[in-house]
Nucleic acid binder design. Structure first.
Lengths: 157, 157
DNA sequence: GTATCTGCAAAGGTTTTGCAAGCTC
DNA sequence: GAGCTTGCAAAACCTTTGCAGATAC
């Protein structure tokens, strides 16, 4: 984590009369150190592995702060668990999700983005955010003998 | 509900060795009679009003069957509750959702659809379905004095 | 010193599930 | 009659929350 990000975080906290704590710092550091789409529990386990014991409740609370401050993006891929990704390290993109193995591929299309803006504007809608996901089978999973699922199953949704 | 749809449903049931029951019929009828984006409880209350007592468990189970058979579309608008919509009465579309009043506006853009297919194909991905939602403020809600929310609040997500 | 934080455990809310009784075919 | 269905209540699940003790400023 860079000094710049640290100052950025402290400023964001101060602006809301929030305090800097070792837990918040550890969570920010962990999040900024990953490029994956992780759920709360992944972050929880990652921190435990680093011998930084933080409760899940604190992780959820901190992720909310980080989302509002623009450090992370919270996304719902439809299986009942939120995913969080480092927003600083990447430009905007959307996701393609394999229904079998759970693999996530990122994509970005300027024209789609442009049209979204246009559609919103045409409808007198003030766009705040969007969610765009493509679900299907990744190359590897299409080649499989259509047996049972592989690793992370796409449950619920 | 047309005779055609009824036969279509019976065929779908037969194909999976499922049985026709009065509950399933009532649920199908209710779903095909609405053009809204409803959650399980809306359908539950609608049926009760018609004096057709069906349990929520049966509604969930039946909606799953109806989704697989192509009668309804199940969608996740990110607030923790699934919405179901009549898929037979409408052509494909996606949704714009007001974060304040919960209003849902449908939209459809051929070029976006085309590009989605292209992106999937470029990545060796076999597309099964997609989810595309625009979140923001509808015209009416932008004009309001930014006080508290109106009716159905967009919680959780 | 006071207001904010943390962790725990319990609550919350929707959706799913086990089971015994009831229906379909 | 065999096997699928239903309804109930309980379970499951992730996420949020109340509270008392701990900590930052």
């Amino acid at each position: 984590m860079t000094t710049k990000h640290l100052r950025q975080f402290k400023d964001a906290l101060k602006q809301d009369s929030l305090r800097m704590t070792s837990q918040r710092l550890a969570i920010l550091d962990d999040v900024l150190g990953s490029e994956e789409h992780r759920e709360c529990d992944d972050i929880y386990l990652s921190l435990r592995q680093k011998k930084v014991p933080v409760s899940r409740a604190t992780i959820y609370r901190t992720l909310d702060i980080l989302e509002k401050a623009g450090f992370v993006r919270k996304m719902d891929i439809g299986d009942g668990r939120f995913r969080y990704e480092n927003k600083l390290a990447q430009t905007h993109h959307d996701h393609m999700i394999c229904l079998k193995c759970g693999k996530i591929i990122e994509f970005m299309d300027r024209e789609i983005e442009r049209r979204q803006d246009q559609i919103a504007s045409d409808n007198g809608f003030h766009l705040v955010k969007h969610s765009h996901q493509l679900y299907g089978l990744c190359g590897a999973c299409q080649d499989l003998p259509a047996a049972e699922d592989q690793s992370a199953p796409a449950s619920k949704a």
